[in-house]
Design a protein around this nucleic acid. Structure first.
Lengths: 339, 339
DNA sequence: AACGCTAATCGAAACGTTTCGAATGTGTCA
DNA sequence: TGACACATTCGAAACGTTTCGATTAGCGTT
């Protein structure tokens, strides 16, 4: 900017004023400055600007795994929304590890991000302190966090699983296996409640041996399914509360020599683009990823626009059961039901 | 830092020296400073540091679509690699649009990213000038760019498609439909060559009506497939050069009432986690995403470590044909071949 | 002719670091 | 005892902006 000012024979203050429109600059100087900018190929340094202004027009976004199709989609939507608003997005993957998350959040804060969208992990770690300090607005994504009272966008997980399991029950299933991620995060917790309540509402017992938990990965779904399928009285249906784990479920079913849906019905959380082109077409609970991403972005953008004092807002969106053909009616029991 | 210095009764220069280890600080002052840092909860401001040092320890990464599973995986690997190295990653999606890409690259450069990894779009736009200025190291990912002479990691696309199409020919297929993205980017161009060469090597004609191109989206694959299937002499196999488009292909096959692989064989580019759990299990060309991401990261990290003058390095990795069951041998012709 | 008003421009401080050269103190050696 | 080397510490400039208050010039009023 100094060079521009010299070339245009004005002060840097005038150049800055012109660039920011913070004061009127005479046509003559405007012309000289613009010429100088073109000649020199000047680009304003956003770092210096950030230092002075205390704002970086950059936000931080952390998710557990970007390869989970739910997060892929949401990240994509969020990225687009902030792009439109002229913000850059720093993306971090925490790998479901609290220490990693803490480290990355620190890294983001060091870089003075203006805001944070977090699909948190573990108990939230340093998140609590950050929200309390209230210097940087935080929006929780997909997962609430106990003791962290801030804006959030989540699904009505309990209801979504309740509906899905109720659907299985209506098909005649009585022993329904349930595969969950670690229950320290709110969606897994709520989904589990939905499962139990659906069984209870139908007057069915909750058999603890039918509930298995793993660490969100394909292999965990595989192992959990193997265990379920080797029970002496094995379930006739399996609901997987997590998308990557259902791949493991399908592989386990295949490896053990069974077929879906003939031998065992499967439904799972999170829809994905392939779900209705291959066989079996998986029955899933689809999350409104577009809305989730957009709402999270707009909550944060609203805070960034200066609306800091409004009380925390929690948005709860509804899932949608996409019924396809991976769950079959159980003949005998179906008759019992219709009898 | 000023506050720390005051609290510890030293100068800011001493605090800085201690923090950076740029000079020896006596045990006594070290102790006082560390105490003050703890008391105040001081965190070094990375923006001010960046301004002074001219480096942000942040890189920019642009891809056309993060929802394309190939890019999802590569982004994930790259993100992890830079995370390990203490760098932050700014992610941008260009939506296959050159103007968007130019804008985002400008945004990244304004923010003084130390380096750039770009899966470019169109003719590269301002990329050429940036590489020539040589202020910011650039690594091309997945796609070379004419006139842009810099580090790159790409696949041997021609060979990969040659192998895949040759495989189809060995199965007895003679009329093989080919669905491609717009050919202005190097992988699409090279893959097309691989297709043509495989046919020529087998002494088969290249029928232009069997080649369809679209814009990388599912719907484009759908339309292209519909066109292919409504030819009076329709192909017995389809190769889709792009992963999202193959979803459209499968949907078109289903909608038209055909089955894969009984009525038509399908193979495509890019593997994905689900490819071997559903039916048909798709035969794909798998890219070594882990290696691609790691190599791209390490090329850039090497430049960032100061190795600026080495000539541009181009890494060409090999794809791997994952043969599953979405392509069937053509009985009659197979006999001809074996005769 | 003196005054105040507005518009345009500018000088200089500030943002929070790093870094260079200077200053200070301490110990060693002739 | 004086000179010198060495270890520590510090003051101040610099990075490239923004912004505040001051300055100047031009103009209409009285």
């Amino acid at each position: 900017m100094l060079h521009v000012a010299e070339a245009a024979r004005v002060s840097v203050a005038t150049v800055s004023a012109l660039l920011n429109g913070t004061a009127t600059v005479s046509p003559e100087l405007t012309q000289r400055i613009e010429q100088a900018i073109r000649d020199i190929g000047y680009k304003r340094n956003a770092i210096a600007r950030s230092l002075k202004m205390g704002t970086t027009r950059t936000i931080g976004l952390t998710v557990p795994h970007i390869t989970n199709p739910f997060f892929t989609d949401v990240v994509s939507v969020i990225q687009q929304a902030f792009d439109r608003a002229g913000y850059a997005v720093m993306l971090c993957c925490t790998d479901e590890d609290l220490n990693t998350q803490d480290e990355q959040i620190r890294l983001l804060l060091d870089r003075m991000v203006d805001g944070l969208i977090v699909a948190r992990v573990g108990d939230g770690g340093i998140l609590k302190g950050i929200v309390e300090d209230a210097n940087v607005p935080v929006v929780l994504l997909d997962r609430l966090c106990e003791g962290v009272d801030t804006d959030a966008v989540v699904l009505d997980n309990q209801r979504a699983v309740f509906d899905a399991v109720t659907y299985l029950i209506h098909l005649g299933h009585r022993r329904i296996g349930y595969i969950t991620g670690t229950s320290d995060i709110s969606p897994m917790h709520d989904r589990m409640i939905g499962y139990r309540e659906a069984l209870q509402a139908a007057g069915l017992p909750v058999a603890e041996e039918l509930v298995r938990s793993g660490n969100f990965h394909e292999i965990d779904g595989y192992n959990a399914t193997m265990q379920l399928l080797s029970l002496h009285d094995r379930p006739s249906a399996i609901f997987s509360a997590n998308n990557p784990m259902v791949i493991g479920t399908m592989k386990a079913i295949r490896d053990i020599g069974l077929n879906c849906p003939e031998d065992i019905s499967v439904a799972c959380f999170d829809d994905f683009p392939w779900s209705d082109v291959f066989a079996p077409q998986l029955t899933t609970v689809a999350q409104p990823v577009q809305a989730i991403g957009e709402q999270a972005a707009s909550l944060l953008l609203d805070r960034l626009a200066g609306n800091r004092d409004a009380p925390p807002r929690k948005l709860v969106l509804k899932g949608r059961l996409m019924i396809r053909n991976s769950c079959r009616p159980l003949g005998a029991v179906a008759q019992t039901v219709s009898a």
